[in-house]
Design a protein around this nucleic acid. Structure first.
Length: 839
RNA sequence: GCCCCUGUGGCGGAAUGGUAGACGCGCUCGACUCAAAAUCGAGUUCUGCAAGGAGUGUCGGUUCGAGUCCGACCAGGGGCACCA
């Protein structure tokens, strides 16, 4: 016996060996089957906490498992290094965002290395490095030249005190989170990427992603929001000037005879026309503008309209005139920015009609008999049988819709159309710490992309944050440049790119990183798509959709032969921990509080502490757990083991000290087994079968990312080996056990492997194989039921036939007692599983 | 409002329509020890001395047999949200 396994020595020892021998550097030219395992790269916010550890441990298990199975594995790590927290830190602590970010990266890299992840550090990248974002700028210029980039006026949340644009989540109760000043809506010229051009393709592609969670595909589907319907025109009868008709979109053409008004968005051309001639219309538009954009404000605002005095003619009933309202609930950027209102069959229209005393007609009913039934207290949106609708009467909603569509297209007043909820991707950020948008604005030539040979446009580091606003705006030598086209005076675009752009192609850069271009097509295609992508479900929509779009855009431009970037996706659960708040409302970290009976107190002051909700570990809630003390006390393997055990990987895991104790105990049990290996002879058939089953089950569980099940299997195997007497089988089982635990507990495995005298390292060893024939036992336990209730279990040889099984079951005393003399009416035998006697 | 997911011991969770509670945590008792730590053994859904009975959110249904399938409901969670 060699005492206890000491992770403080072993962790470091093997981490150094792996690094020295460059075990994890991926070879793009390898002939082996390739696997690309990727965990969503972190934002370098400060320090790694155990929430990160869970994410990377899962990826590491897959990577190490595939490597042992003979794959060439690419498992890289990098930093999503641009973003607002760095600017906030700069303002709060007077450090440069770059210095702050790079210091964090240094800290976090060291932390990750101590946990023994099999990352290929030679491919490490940080998005704030010009060697990365310069290539991103080149890709942006390519997109620009391909017509996938455009500029458009768009509204933003503007903080008038900080003179900065705020993201929606920075607006709290209509006020800036930092300044507290009421937020204004301001129109700015901003850059957009034409993601909507790929809406249909992004939607269709979801069906090919059979290794994505159903949930994520559904969320993306809803986000894209495809609606099929009819686009048609109402002829304007009471108007003036220029505009001759109003175009609307509907998904319910069947209800066309139920229309009692037309409503247009405040931004609609006709609304602007009305405002020109009518001061009350103009003030209504002002009123609409004042309202906030948040969901809560929309909720309370209610439905408001303004009667324009304009009206339109119903396309199928020349005598019917419908009034036009400007309405605050009509969106100018969805559909045509105009609708026809059918109060009887749309709840929103119903409320609006009630408010403005508009007719509410029934055009859909359960059957023709209910044609004159009035609409009750709410609208009836369900499809049904058409009534009060002239030639549509008696048709189902579906048939009626098709009929209207046919007539509209034939007569030329409408056209079937499909619209999407998805909007183009606004990528302009009025921020300093991001990728400069490689555009130069020239009075003569307009917006000109920076020529490729002048890239990268390097973000200047000599800036200060003493004054509010974007420092790029007041950096004269950087901002003022000559126009690349005409040579005249021009100015750089001072907006930077949304950080989601940075993460939309980093996986390609990981696969291939030439210095003179974003990636080498052949090399990138040799690794992509990512075999297994792992990350939080919070990125289910935006990041994953943008990355899918970016990949399609590259394909569209002929740069890569790849449609979907991530073949397999796994959305892992969060690591959670209770939160604590001091009396003044500030958050306290778990290390600052102590449990005193049923209450919590602040250790330093002794003041009571209010325990809050169990939440995702985050810096802002201060409920993070640092890995260092755990590594010090239990070692990397116990930490990794615990992160994988107990909870299924897709579910949240609540952090507990107790759990890690159990993990540590397991590590020591394996070490003791390795120490007990001898050179015994003799076979142990039961143990052989047990091992075979474990090899099969652990492999299958890892493959299915069911780490908790793999771990349960390993516990059972360890118990079985511990109980088995010395034999050659036992030594074989111990050797295999070391390999089986290696993906989860790699340091322990190496140490054991070395101890039992094996040559080479476990990282280079082959995953154990199993004999399918040994998975089957020759003795089985039959469940004996009477009327479906378990009454007895009997051991029997495998393969017992129907009659023999029945006879065996009937011989059971317990069965006989249940039957109390009666003859069974029916007997169901499931071979090698159970006998059910129906009395 | 619309869409989706989940409800199993004290806790985390297992269970191709076929022995519910694997495995872990916690707890109880015991062994070893002067003692402790570590380790090992036994037990641990509820009820009952036992035989037995009950039991997977609730109520129904399908089936020889339901945690698993179907319907309705309740509870919790997530996504979208004035989307025509």
């Amino acid at each position: 016996m060699n005492g206890r396994f000491d992770p403080r020595l072993a962790d470091r020892r093997w981490q150094d060996r792996w690094a020295d021998e460059r075990c994890f550097e991926a070879d793009s030219t390898s002939e082996k089957p390739k696997t690309f395992v990727l965990e969503m790269f972190p934002y370098p916010s400060g320090r790694i906490h155990v929430g990160h550890v869970r994410n990377y441990t899962m990826g590491d298990v897959i990577a190490r498992f595939r490597r042992m199975q003979g794959h060439e594995v690419l498992h890289p790590m990098g930093w999503d290094a641009f973003g607002m927290p760095a600017e906030n830190a700069a303002m709060e602590r007077k450090v440069h965002p770059g210095a702050w970010t790079r210091a964090n990266i240094g800290t976090m890299r060291d932390q990750l290395k101590r946990i023994g992840f099999s990352f290929d550090w030679s491919r490490e990248l940080a998005t704030c490095d010009p060697a990365y974002y310069g290539h991103e700028q080149a890709l942006f210029v390519d997109l620009f030249n391909a017509g996938l980039v455009y500029r458009k006026e768009s509204e933003v949340n503007w903080d008038p005190v900080d003179m900065t644009v705020l993201a929606n989540e920075q607006v709290i109760d209509g006020k800036g989170w930092r300044s507290g000043a009421p937020v204004e809506r301001r129109k700015l010229n901003q850059w957009f990427l034409k993601i909507t051009e790929f809406a249909d393709d992004l939607l269709d592609g979801l069906e090919t992603l059979d290794r994505w969670p159903e949930k994520v595909r559904l969320m993306q589907e809803n986000w894209i929001g495809k609606s099929k319907g009819l686009n048609f025109r109402f002829a304007l009868t009471k108007p003036a000037g220029g505009i001759s008709d109003v175009e609307v979109f509907t998904t319910r053409p069947d209800t066309i005879f139920g229309a009692s008004f037309v409503a247009i968005a405040p931004g609609h051309p006709l609304a602007l026309l009305a405002a020109e001639n009518d001061p009350s219309a103009a003030s209504f538009l002002e009123e609409c503008k004042a309202g906030g954009t948040s969901a809560a404000e929309i909720e309370t605002a209610g439905k408001k309209g303004h009667l324009t005095g304009f009206s339109v003619r119903h396309p199928l009933d020349p005598d019917l005139q419908l009034p036009i309202f400007i309405a605050n609930f009509v969106l100018s950027d969805y559909g045509t920015g105009a609708i026809f209102g059918v109060p009887g069959h749309d709840q929103r229209d119903f409320e609006f009609a009630n408010q403005y005393q508009l007719p509410i007609m029934r055009v859909v009913a359960e059957s023709l008999e209910f044609a004159s039934e009035p609409i009750g207290v709410e609208a009836e949106p369900a499809p049904g049988i058409m009534v009060n609708s002239q030639f549509l009467n008696g048709m189902t909603s579906e048939v009626a819709s098709a009929e209207i569509l046919r007539r509209a297209e034939q007569a030329g007043w409408g056209l079937g159309s499909t619209i999407y909820r998805l909007r183009d991707w606004g990528v302009s950020r009025q921020r300093y710490w991001g990728t400069p948008i490689p555009i130069i604005h020239c009075e003569k030539c307009g917006a000109v992309p920076v020529p490729l040979d002048q890239l990268p446009v390097i973000l200047p580091e000599d800036v200060s944050f003493d004054v509010p606003g974007n420092p790029l705006d007041r950096h004269p030598t950087w901002k003022n440049v000559d126009c690349p086209t005409c040579g005249g005076q021009a100015a750089r675009e001072t907006d930077t790119l949304d950080t989601f752009v940075d993460s939309s192609w980093y996986f390609i850069r990981f696969a291939s990183q030439p210095s003179d271009r974003p990636f080498d097509r052949v090399e990138a295609e040799s690794w992509l798509p990512v075999t297994q992508y792992i990350g939080g479900v919070e990125h289910a929509i935006l990041h994953l959709l943008y990355a899918r779009f970016w990949t399609r855009a590259l394909k569209h431009m002929g740069q890569i032969g790849l449609t979907e970037p991530f073949a397999g996706l796994f959305a892992q659960g969060m690591v959670t921990h209770e939160t604590y708040r001091a009396g003044d409302g500030s958050w306290l970290s778990p290390g600052e509080v102590r449990k005193d009976g049923d209450d919590w107190v602040h250790i330093e002051s002794g003041h009571p502490v209010a325990p809050g909700r169990i939440e995702k570990m985050s810096k802002s809630r201060r409920n993070t757990i640092a890995p260092e003390p755990i590594l010090e006390k239990y070692g990397a393997d116990a930490l990794r083991w615990f992160m994988l055990s107990d909870s299924p990987a897709e579910r949240d895991l609540e952090w507990s000290e107790a759990g890690i104790e159990g993990a540590s105990r397991f590590v020591q049990r394996v070490w003791r087994l390795a120490n007990s290996i001898g050179s015994s002879s003799g076979t142990d058939a039961a143990l052989d079968r047990r091992l075979n089953r474990a090899v099969a089950a652990v492999g299958e569980a890892i493959e299915g990312l069911q780490f908790n099940k793999a771990i349960a299997q390993l516990y059972e195997l360890v118990t079985a080996i511990e109980k088995a007497p010395a034999s050659q089988s036992r030594d074989v089982a111990i050797r295999a056990l070391i390999l089986l635990v290696a993906p989860m507990a790699p340091h322990l495995a190496e140490e054991c492997w070395d101890f039992i005298g094996e040559q080479g390292m476990v990282v280079d060893a082959a995953w154990p194989s199993f004999d399918p024939a040994l998975l089957i036992d020759d003795q089985v336990t039959l469940a004996i039921q009477v009327n479906g209730k378990l009454r007895d279990t009997l051991s029997a040889p495998r393969g017992l036939d129907q009659a023999a099984a029945e006879a065996l079951a009937l011989s059971s005393e317990k069965v006989q007692r249940q039957l109390s003399g009666a003859a069974p009416r029916k007997v169901i035998v499931v071979r090698d599983r159970l006998v059910n006697i129906v009395a």
